[in-house]
Amino acid sequence: MSDTDTLIEVRQVTRRFAESTAIKEVSFDVYRGELLTVVGSSGCGKSTLARMMAGLDSPTSGEISIDGKVIDGPSPDRGMVFQKYTLFPWLTVVKNVMFALTVQGQGRRSAESEAMQWVEMIGLSDFAHRYPHELSGGMQQRVAIARSLAARPKVLLMDEPFGALDAQTRQKMQHHLLTICEHVDITVVFITHDLDEAIFLADRVLVLKPNPGEIQDIVNVSLPKPRCIDLQFSHAFVELRTKLASMIHHADEEEDLPMHMLTMKHA
């Protein structure tokens, strides 16, 4: 890929906390228009990575830049969808989606009609004037995606956005997301611990190994698009899944072995 295709550059990023190192000397690029998923077992610093890209946390060393500009705080050019439901409970669906627009000074009228288009796209027109607590978890996350996209970000960061949903809803949400990506010109960085989800959604999968979080590998997913559920039973999918699983398993084993021995001793 040529340089102009790179949207985000992560360079030698390390994030240390008081007791541990969450991310250690991580470098990679996010290409414009791709959907990059980041997988790894819990505690590998995936969320920290996403938060640093959003500007909600800053690297101890190294830097992250978007379009050549170093990130030094949150900005609407980097939208974020969290695992926890973060819709503003005092605003209706459409007003939640309008939030970024009106904060940036857009008139109420035009903001509302623009927001309605997003609400329509996520298929929740009937719920436009409902409050978040009247919506199911899946619906809330759809609105959260629309709310972020309405701000016209360059990248959408998603930190295990479907983690709290049941398996069926999660699958539907994955479809929703892919459909949205077909219609909107957006780059997505999607954090997950679910391998199927990571492969199903991704153009590329970045595998992190834990303690400290380091890049294990970045794998291209050359499965055909548009993707459908049946894909998960295809030979190529299963093969890729096995490959990634063994990668993560390996990384975990190195990490977990002493822990197991420790608990054995205690027992």
């Binding site: 909600l56 973060t86 939030f99 904060v103 972020s148």
Partner: peptide, 20 residues
């Protein structure tokens, strides 16, 4: 988390205080 979400949507300072 609501404050963080608002920040990624462009709210800061006064708008964060008054609108979130």
């Amino acid at each position: 988390m609501l404050i963080e979400a608002a920040k990624t949507l462009g709210a800061e300072g006064r708008s964060l205080l008054l609108r979130v």
